[in-house]
């Protein structure tokens, strides 16, 4: 309806120009959007195509765009490289990421519930303290964090990537906002039925949080899976590394064989893109709602 109304308004104004302008305008819009798309996709394409090129083709100047003799050798080399037990690194990344996501979801929902639905002394102070820690960038706490891990012997362990990550101020903040919208009557009804506070959290509040948990979970997943600086600080032993730091290490081992490094990059980048396509709408919704990374 609205479109029809708009067109007719326009038509009365300058009906003789309308068709042409609309046409050119649309053409331009799609042209720009597709130009943007190709800018977005070209680096991926370059890497993926490069990963199928042979050793001689990859060092050719000028380079080819499409592989002339597409080959899977690069992937074979990586998978068979005994120094690069890929599954182990996927395992390391998955272990750290999943542990951190689960603890973040648990603590954020529990504390979000607490801050949203309970009154107690010092609540505002405590909440303000959390917001403050959210503002302190990790680069400042990185050095003492490293020294603490060294003291307690957690350097070079995957636990070193986990112990400081149990509380996420952003997650608490976000879930508090969400839980505040749940009706108090729901909780009181459960209390009258004899539910304990923990049961209310577990049986009443948590099941209502589905979308919010999905959003927080995916954002936290991305952050942990792609983390680079902190894992690089904590872990120097090869077999404990996570995917991003193994990728940079691998590229320094094969500076003259970019086709192999490209294949490694594909193997490390692509899984997260699948996760993204699966959870796409949660991420987009979450960012649009909260505007936080």
């Amino acid at each position: 309806m609205a479109t029809i109304a708009r067109t007719s308004v326009k038509a009365t104004h300058r009906s003789w120009r309308l068709p042409r302008v609309r046409h050119v305008g649309h053409f331009l819009v799609y042209f720009l959007l597709i130009l943007g798309l190709s800018v977005t996709l070209t680096p991926f394409a370059w890497m993926i195509l490069g990963s199928f090129k042979t050793a001689t083709e990859i060092i050719q100047t000028p380079p080819t765009f499409w592989p002339e003799n597409p080959t899977l050798d690069n992937y074979r080399t990586i998978v068979q490289d005994p120094r690069l037990p890929l599954l182990r690194f996927y395992g390391n990344s998955a272990f750290v990421t999943i542990t951190n996501v689960i603890t973040t979801l648990f603590t954020s929902s529990l504390l979000g519930f607490l801050f949203a639905k309970y009154e107690f002394r010092g609540k505002r102070l405590l909440f303000g303290w959390f917001l403050l820690t959210m503002m302190i960038p990790g680069q400042m706490t990185m050095i003492p964090g490293y020294l603490i891990l060294a003291k307690v012997g957690l350097l070079n362990t995957l636990w070193g990537l986990i112990v400081f990550s149990a509380l996420d101020a952003f997650g608490i903040f976000m879930l508090r906002q969400f839980i505040e919208t749940l009706p108090n009557e729901l909780l009181d009804a459960a209390r009258i039925d004899g539910a304990s506070e923990w049961q209310i959290y577990w049986r009443i509040v948590l099941p209502q949080l589905g979308p919010a948990l999905a959003t927080l979970g995916t954002l936290s997943f991305m952050g942990n899976w792609n983390a680079y600086l902190w894992p690089m600080v904590v872990i120097t032993r090869l077999e404990r590394r996570t995917l991003p730091i193994i990728l940079t290490w691998y590229s320094t081992q094969h500076t003259t064989r970019p086709n192999i490094v490209m294949a490694a990059t594909v193997l490390i980048v692509i899984p997260i893109l699948f996760v993204y396509f699966f959870f796409q709408r949660w991420i987009v919704k979450g960012i649009a709602l909260t505007g936080f990374k």
Binding site: G36, L37, T40, L41, P43, F44, M222, W225, N226, Y228, L243, P244, I245, L247, T248, T265, I268, V269, I272, L273, V275, Y276, Q280, I283, V284
Partner: peptide, 11 residues
């Protein structure tokens, strides 16, 4: 357009 955001910055 959002794809690069979720790609690891190392990648």
């Amino acid at each position: 357009y959002f794809l690069p955001v979720v790609t690891s910055s190392v990648g």
